[in-house]
Design a protein around this nucleic acid. Structure first.
Lengths: 168, 168
DNA sequence: CTTCCTGCAAACTGTTTGCAGTCCA
DNA sequence: TGGACTGCAAACAGTTTGCAGGAAG
């Protein structure tokens, strides 16, 4: 990975995006450039809206649809990918899928990244027993983080009490 | 489970819903009755819309909002619960949460129920290592079913090809 | 100069909410 | 009777799409 770049690489660790675009017959546009930079700046998991806000600091008139289309294109060429962390909007991050997975607290929203190796054993079991190839990188593992679980000690049968903005 | 009923139990295996409602200060209405019967008839995992359609066979004017509010009430009193099987609408089913979990194929949508025991070991590991209490009953485990995985042999790095109506 | 790309507005799905009228207890 | 419940319409979030004009190559 990480092919050498001839020009225009802003050095955000995004790799040869220009080349990726070009090799897929896609154009390099200010909007796409700004989107890539925005994601790099946000350097984590960002929703389309957060990315759009960031993009508009540079190009104030970029529309939501362009952001969505751009994210789609960039994902298609392999420059980034998205994941679902619960009920809320999907989040995008740089790089290919499959590198890490997410544990998300349904109550406080806390996000913990874990290595793909963590789920490998379980995934193997599902594969052996059911022929099912689980993908824990695209959809998060939901549950309760340590502190939330401690705060509300196991009341059996209570289906994860509805809290705050947590519409389930 | 399956408390004895004094009256009105349609015998759908829904248990003492009347009592549940009453004990929560909620009323028994034709709409709620019809919703319960609809779910019992659908006897699986049904979306709010599927339930609404079924309800309207008996009460043609029931509105979507009533169905949603009814499902919410019934869930709050413990008569049913819902789960998320991917990008699509949530599905509702009779009974309390935590009894079974779902393996959902992201490509063909195939749904496989597995006993809660299947994930117990993995959940324990997450708890020990990260203090994270995973809940596999509310959010499904996504991936590829046996036949879809066979049809598209592992092309490494390809993030679950986009197909049919599968907007991710 | 020809595509691809963009912005705008509108549509869309799934779900929630405000309101005024209705009905159960 | 009074508060719970209902239907309607409107709003909501997140995302997609059709279209006409704009720009990359």
């Amino acid at each position: 990975m990480r092919a050498k770049r001839a020009s225009h690489d802003p050095g955000h660790g995004l790799g040869d995006v220009d080349g990726l675009l070009r090799s897929h017959g896609l154009r390099r546009t200010p909007q796409r450039q700004a989107t890539l930079e925005a994601i790099a700046e946000l350097s984590g998991h960002a929703t389309a809206e957060q990315i759009a806000e960031r993009v508009r600091r540079r190009l104030p008139t970029v529309s939501a649809s362009t952001v969505y289309r751009t994210l789609g294109s960039l994902e298609r060429v392999g420059a980034l990918c998205h994941a679902h962390l619960g009920h809320t909007a999907s989040v995008y991050h740089v790089g290919r899928a499959g590198l890490h997975q997410h544990l998300v607290c349904e109550r406080c929203g806390a996000l913990r990244e874990v290595e793909a190796s963590v789920t490998a054993g379980f995934a193997g079991e599902l594969r052996r027993r059911f022929g099912f190839h689980a993908n824990f990188t695209h959809f998060a593992v939901l549950g309760e983080c340590r502190s939330c679980a401690a705060r509300r000690p196991r009341s059996p049968g209570t289906p994860a009490g509805r809290r705050r903005g947590a519409r389930h």
